[in-house]
Structure formats: structure tokens, C-alpha cells
Design a protein around this nucleic acid. Structure first.
Length: 92
DNA sequence: CAAACTATTCAGC
DNA sequence: GCTGAATAGTTTG
């Protein structure tokens, strides 16, 4: 576990459901605004996918970068989380 | 330690 | 909108 990775994990795990953050945003929070690519790599090779909502981390322009299970799955995942929020919030 | 790789980002056209 | 170059960190040898 590298220090930078640790920061990234913590930051990403703080992202709320239904929200998305960009690699740049995470990198900036980690203290390395230029390490956006490194962030993506860490998420890709992370050993704790359960505590790291990597599907909530996308590139700029709200575009999905990549995903081990497929970009389409990632997109659906985000949409699914929105429905979860709707269930919890409006309790509909 | 150095080289290669990467789910990116920015600038130029 | 697409192509090319640059940045920083992880991983592997």
C-alpha cells in the first residue's frame, strides 16, 4: 500500500452515492493534481474494490473512463445508485 | 533504481 | 471533435 494510494482510497470512499468525481478531482485532493492518471491506475489495481467505489470515479466531462467489468456496467451502476437514493430519499 | 504502463488532462488544429 | 504531448505515481525487472 503506497501513501498516495491510501489517500486516493480514502478520498474515493468518501464520494456519496449517485455522485461522481473526476480523476483530476481525486488527484487534487490527494495533493497531486497532475497525478490523475496515477489515480486511475491505482483504482484499477486496487485490492479493496468493496471500499473503493471506483465506478464513481470518472474522467473529465463526466465521461466514463474504463472499468474492469465494462464501461457500460459502470454507467448502469451509477444509474442504479441514483435509484437507490430515490428509494431512500422519497421513499417511493 | 530505471523503464514501461496507465481507467487522464491540456493545448493545438 | 480529434491528435499529439506532458505529468505523476505504480508496478515490474
Amino acid at each position: 500500500m503506497t501513501p498516495f494510494a491510501k489517500k486516493v482510497y480514502k478520498i474515493v470512499s468518501v464520494i456519496p452515492i449517485g455522485e461522481v468525481r473526476t480523476y483530476k478531482w481525486v488527484a487534487r485532493k490527494a495533493g497531486k493534481p497532475k497525478a490523475s492518471r496515477a489515480v486511475g491506475q491505482i483504482l484499477k489495481r486496487n485490492h479493496y474494490p468493496l471500499i473503493i467505489p471506483c465506478h464513481r470515479v470518472i474522467n473529465s466531462n463526466n465521461k466514463i473512463g474504463g472499468y474492469v467489468f465494462g464501461v457500460n456496467k459502470k454507467k448502469l451502476l451509477l444509474d442504479m445508485e441514483k435509484e437507490i437514493l430515490r428509494c431512500l430519499g422519497t421513499r417511493k
